[in-house]
């Protein structure tokens, strides 16, 4: 009896030891660098994989769809995409979890931290698209009330833009919390009788805008260009006090319009240096606002899959993308 017991105990001990050894062998002894980790879903056969960050707006999806299609079809890479918000995307880029961000609207703090201080991220050049944030009213409303497009007259229309949610004030519809916005400060500093209502996500904001448009109701919204929704719901920008270099330096005292930003690409430093053809291709990737919108519309309005939309665009724009390929 005693022997059985001892044997059982030995067996347990052996199992525990084996498990420990196996675990150590699996994880490797010593340091484990999280920055060199691959996705568990990576293809078993192909070793050349590129991971791209997709931001939540459709323009960014269009960039990635086309880049992905070309990387896969022309250069023989496998492409993973990860959808993440902008700031976490910088973090992921720095860690090597994604190799490239194809469209960034300007994050000076992150640029300083990761490019200048840590050196884990490198600039990848212009995307070729210029981005602009602003306040917009639907064109059907602007035509009837042309003076609404000057911010000085906005208070006159506060009542028109009122909703249940904004209470006694006019409603300024803002979007996803991940976007750059000075709207609360603007409303305060320009002394406007408006309430900023955060839709909380772009999907909610677009859905709401479409509903308003369907009923031809007036509304005032934070929006940005390029964006496919303009093709669906034509909108006119409201002029804010002109942008001057540095007028948005102090987020609390902003009282001017948003700048026009040439959108940027960023690459993980290790990838930029050792990424071969893929890195070279992504550095050269550069197209126009119209091209991006074409693809974005196919995705958002025709409900094509991003891949399908990219294929269509690639078929009819060979001259453009040929120049991106590494020679």
């Amino acid at each position: 009896m005693a022997r059985t017991r001892t044997r059982a105990r030995t067996r347990t001990r052996f199992a525990a030891l084996a498990a420990a050894v196996a675990l150590t062998a699996l994880t490797g002894c010593g340091a484990a660098d999280m920055t060199t980790q691959a996705s568990p879903y990576a293809d078993a056969k192909s070793s050349r994989t590129v991971t791209l960050s997709v931001q939540s707006w459709v323009g960014a999806q269009a960039n990635v769809a086309v880049a992905q299609y070309l990387l896969e079809q022309e250069l023989g890479y496998r492409v993973d995409t990860v959808q993440i918000d902008e700031i976490p995307a910088w973090d992921a880029l720095s860690q090597g979890r994604v190799d490239a961000i194809l469209e960034d609207w300007g994050h000076p703090e992150q640029e300083k931290r990761y490019i200048d201080d840590k050196g884990t991220i490198k600039r990848g050049g212009d995307l070729g698209v210029t981005g602009h944030i602003g306040w917009f009213v639907p064109t059907y409303f602007a035509k009837e009330h042309p003076d609404v497009t000057d911010w000085k007259n906005l208070n006159k229309y506060a009542d028109t833009f009122r909703t249940a949610e904004s209470g006694g004030k006019g409603q300024l519809l803002d979007g996803s919390p991940s976007y750059i916005t000075n709207d609360k400060a603007l409303v305060k500093n320009l002394d406007l009788d408006y309430q900023v209502v955060f839709a909380g996500s772009e999907a909610a904001q677009i859905t709401q805008i479409k509903q308003f448009a369907k009923e031809k109701k007036p509304f005032l919204t934070y929006w940005y260009n390029p964006q496919w929704l303009f093709e669906k719901v034509p909108m006119t920008e409201v002029k804010l006090p002109a942008y001057k270099e540095g007028c948005d330096a102090d987020p609390k005292k902003v009282a001017c319009a948003y700048p026009h930003t040439p959108l940027q690409k960023f690459l993980n430093a290790r990838f930029a240096d050792g990424g071969g053809d893929a890195a070279a291709f992504l550095k050269k990737f550069r197209w126009t606002t119209e091209m991006q919108n074409d693809v974005a519309l196919m995705i958002a309005e025709q409900k094509l899959s991003p891949r399908e939309a990219a294929r269509k665009w690639v078929e009819s724009n060979e001259a453009t993308w040929r120049t991106w390929l590494p020679s």
Binding site: I87, P177, S178, G200
Partner: peptide
């Protein structure tokens, strides 16, 4: 989740915190 559809308040703050790191 309410923060994602305009609920504002704490829900929005939580989403904001995540989105902005």
């Amino acid at each position: 989740i309410g923060g994602l559809v305009g609920g504002g308040a704490l829900g929005y703050d939580a989403v904001f915190g995540l989105a902005q790191g």
